[in-house]
Amino acid sequence: MKLARKKLPEKGPAIGRLKLQWADIVGPSLAKVCEPDKIGASPKGKGRVLTLRCIPAASTMVQHQSELIRQRVSVSLGGDVRDIRIVQGPLKQSPPAAPAKKRRTLTPSERESLLSSVQTIEDTDLRKAVLALGEAVLTTDES
């Protein structure tokens, strides 16, 4: 990758590749709160500087993990990321939405069993809440 990068433009491919692989590089929890903004030359002339955009509430956490992030990004891009700068602000890319859990329908016997188990509850609001909870638990597919 080091050899290929010398022939490619400095900014374009590296930042694009980094944005595509960001969640794989830093993990899903960090990818939700920060994202790569740009990659530039180091002021000292050796290596590059990665600028991360992160939400203000997570900036301290990102700062504490910046060395780990730098190492992972450096390995991913070929080994010359020397420093990380953190910019606070809203993320430009929204994190990918989690897939919705699949719901299945209750079988008639499951519905009857659930209804009979809540019949002894006298408070109607509580009975409805427990019934809704039971339906939610039984219809959530774990796969």
Rank of each mutant, 00 (worst) to 15 (best):
M1C: 09
K2M: 05
K2L: 06
A4I: 01
A4R: 09
K7M: 15
K7S: 04
E10C: 06
K11H: 15
K11C: 07
K11R: 11
P13S: 10
A14V: 13
I15R: 10
R17Y: 05
L18I: 00
L18H: 02
Q21K: 10
I25M: 00
P28E: 12
S29M: 09
S29K: 02
S29T: 13
L30N: 04
L30C: 05
A31I: 05
A31E: 00
V33R: 01
V33A: 09
E35V: 01
E35L: 04
D37G: 00
K38V: 06
I39T: 02
G40K: 14
G40N: 12
A41D: 09
S42V: 08
S42Q: 06
S42I: 10
K44A: 14
G45S: 08
G45W: 06
G47R: 10
R48M: 10
L50F: 08
T51Y: 06
L52P: 04
C54K: 00
I55N: 02
I55D: 00
A58W: 14
A58I: 11
S59R: 15
T60A: 01
V62Y: 01
Q63A: 15
H64N: 14
H64C: 08
Q65R: 15
S66R: 15
E67N: 02
E67A: 08
E67T: 08
I69K: 00
I69D: 04
R70E: 02
Q71L: 01
Q71P: 00
R72N: 05
R72T: 03
L77S: 05
G78K: 07
G79T: 02
D83V: 03
D83M: 11
I84H: 06
I84L: 11
I86A: 08
I86M: 04
Q88Y: 08
G89E: 11
P90N: 14
P90V: 14
L91I: 07
L91Y: 05
L91H: 11
K92D: 11
Q93C: 07
P95C: 08
A97G: 05
A97P: 09
A98D: 00
A98R: 14
P99R: 15
P99Q: 04
A100E: 09
K101T: 10
K101V: 13
R103Q: 15
R104M: 00
R104I: 03
T105K: 12
T105P: 10
T105Q: 14
T105W: 04
L106R: 06
T107H: 15
P108D: 12
R111E: 15
S113E: 11
L115S: 14
S116V: 07
S117I: 06
V118G: 01
Q119N: 09
T120V: 11
I121M: 06
D123M: 10
T124R: 12
T124E: 12
L126F: 13
K128Q: 14
K128L: 15
A129W: 12
A129N: 02
V130Y: 01
V130I: 10
V130P: 09
L131N: 03
L131T: 10
L133G: 09
L133R: 07
G134P: 04
G134L: 14
E135R: 01
V137S: 09
L138D: 05
T139W: 12
T140C: 11
T140S: 09
D141M: 05
D141I: 14
E142I: 13
S143L: 09
